[in-house]
Amino acid sequence: MTTQKTRSLDHFMSNAFWPTRIILAMSLTVALFAQPPAGGQGRGGGRGQSAPVPPSPEGDWVRTDPIGSGSWDALTKTFTPASLTPEGAALMQSGGRGGRGGGRGGAGGGGQAADTTPHPVGVAYLVRQNSCTFNGGGQLGMEYDSEGFHMVVSKQEALVVQERNGSRRIYLDGRAIPDASVRPPSSSGYSVGHFEADGTLVVETGDMTPGTVTAGGYRTAETRAIQRYIPSPDGKHLRIVFTWVDPKIYQKPHTYEYTFDRMEPGSYALETFCDATDPLWNQSIVPPEQR
């Protein structure tokens, strides 16, 4: 980007009247050295500021619902289903139906099986769907649910969190995905990335736990996922294009995408505080007394 800007500037200046060139160059220099106003640069068009945001996946994002169904299942049904190899189809059959196991993360998930045993009428009982067990995973999944996500880009990594425990990091320091035998596979795998000139973040992930993938796919530790985080030129929108590659599982790369909007100025990350003693968290049900 800087090289292009410099070239354009050089071209412009070589054709400008010389004193004008000096004035322009000095003005530009002064302007560029000037600091952003107190309070810093805004987000999403400015947190109280009107400064534009650069095209970057950094920031706070909420997933959009292009078909307006309000349902993740309905949204993903619009995706082109995966073309599986016979081996991939066999893995799907043995590894679970449909689902989104390969997708969304479950940090802090845990959970116990729902109580499906019969209960006498009028007797209170509990249905526990989420026990707030901290399973130690601390990892987000590969996809982001309706909580949206928050990404910070430092010099060495892109750190992603949602509004609950757990995080995902994408190393930007040029390292390769290491041998899978070094560490146990995880829900969001091991990710490395780099930026392209237009601000797109290209992320390659391997070493993921086996499981289903959105729109009829499957993954193993050997599967590679390529995610392209593509910001709009005005920085206000984002597409994440997924491409799952595994010749053992897919006849052709399995691709789909989600879209996101940058959160409004003044928004902030909420906290999801999972409390095992909170009846609401545990989805407990105490039926009304039967008469």
């Binding site: 640069q41 987000r43 601390g138 910070v152 880009v153 990594e157 969190v161 990091r169 906290e271």
Partner: peptide, 30 residues
């Protein structure tokens, strides 16, 4: 603690059962 500093905030992601910390540069308190 994994502390990463970006353009608009510092994010602290603990390797523990705890919410991440968002430390914003670009705004006053909510």
């Amino acid at each position: 603690l994994d502390i990463q500093q970006g353009k608009w905030e510092i994010l602290i992601a603990p390797e523990a059962n705890a919410s991440p910390r968002h430390i914003y540069f670009d705004r006053p308190h909510i």
